Amino acid sequence: MKINKILNNNAVVVKEGTEEKIVMGAGIAFQKRKNDVINQHKIEKIFVMSEENEKFQELLRSLPEEVIDIAEEIISYAEGYLQVPLSNHIHIGLTDHLSFAINRTKSGYPIKNKLLNEIKTLYAKEFHVGEWAIRYVKEQIGLTMPEDEAGHIALHIHTAKLDSSNMQSAIKHTSMITELLELLEERIGYPLQRNSISHQRMVTHLHFALNRFEMNEPFHDIDPDMLDLIKSKHEEAYRYAQAMGEYVEQEYNVSFPLSEVGYIALHIQRIIDRT
């Protein structure tokens, strides 16, 4: 395997037939030139990026090597911890994002994540990876990043899982849930206890409800007598649930059936009872 192009000290491009591959490894290009043979023992990762090949090469040429190395360590840790392969795009998306976040933090600009509480609940394992990542950044370059950044990294990791939704869909759903919870807080007149079990169950339920609608899957039925009981016994909670259903229909054209409104009302009542 011969070097066709050197991107940085730890990354080169090789050509096998008509196919270009990016080969990475610590010091793989040290004191090397084009057409030199690669030391096989230094190869750690090989990528075939297809249409994104040029963008990845540009990142490897332009970004500091320490940032690239940190991003690759985070990706390796994520794949090991989650026990799932991540799509090749994560090497572009996370590296680019991490570089921006590090520069922003160094410049003194705050990093905020409005979806942080919902991310913690919906993507707990990925958030653990995000927490590990900001600790690793601190160890490597002495930069303290906020918990909000762990949430951003968690979303990148989640959407890179090969069976997951894309970033746009994940952010949309999480934003919708955040808006619904803010609407509920406005209606009940006090802030929700974001770390409570009742809150976490509500977030998870809304997440699956939105997924069912998007995937055109049937919602769970509810006995008509049970629904009537919820309406009469938990009138206030049912009214709030109706308001949440009307909101997603008006703002996002998402329609919840009456059975789903009933289940949401039960979750709201648990929150009220435990407050």
Rank of each mutant, 00 (worst) to 15 (best):
K106S: 07
F213A: 05
A29W: 01
K172W: 02
E58H: 09
P257S: 07
T105S: 14
E139Q: 14
I272R: 03
T204C: 00
S87Q: 13
N117L: 10
G93F: 05
E186C: 05
I92Y: 10
N113P: 04
Y263A: 01
Q250I: 08
M176S: 01
S87N: 11
E249F: 01
D225V: 09
Y252T: 00
T95A: 08
K15M: 15
K138L: 12
E79N: 05
H41A: 12
G17M: 13
I222Y: 01
V23L: 07
E186P: 02
A101E: 13
A29Q: 04
I92V: 12
M176I: 13
N8S: 09
N113L: 13
Q140M: 13
T105E: 15
S50R: 12
E260R: 00
G93N: 15
H267Y: 11
N113K: 05
A154L: 15
V137D: 09
V84A: 10
G245C: 06
H152P: 02
L116H: 02
S62N: 15
F213G: 00
L227Y: 07
I264L: 15
I188C: 01
L206H: 02
I111S: 09
D223W: 05
E149P: 07
H220C: 02
L266M: 14
R201D: 04
R201N: 11
P85K: 14
Y263K: 04
M176K: 04
A237F: 05
R270N: 12
A11M: 08
E217D: 00
E65I: 09
R61Q: 14
V23C: 08
P146G: 06
N166A: 00
E249I: 04
T144E: 15
V261Y: 00
K120A: 04
H156R: 12
M215L: 14
H128R: 12
F30V: 03
G27H: 08
D36P: 00
D163H: 09
S255C: 11
E214F: 06
M1I: 05
M49A: 10
E72S: 09
A78F: 06
N10H: 10
K21T: 04
P85V: 08
I171H: 03
G189V: 11
R194K: 14
F219N: 02
L86F: 07
N35H: 04
G27M: 04
S62C: 13
I70R: 05
I111E: 08
E179Q: 13
P257E: 09
I222A: 03
N117I: 10
T144Y: 14
I230L: 06
I3F: 06
L122T: 09
E185D: 10
G108L: 13
L94Q: 07
A265S: 13
E182S: 14
N10Y: 02
E149V: 05
N88R: 14
T178Y: 12
Q242A: 00
L86H: 03
H89Y: 11
S175M: 07
F127D: 02
G142A: 08
A243H: 06
H267K: 10
H173G: 00
A209Q: 06
I75F: 04
I3Y: 01
L258T: 02
S198Y: 06
E126F: 06
V254H: 00
Q193D: 12
F256V: 02
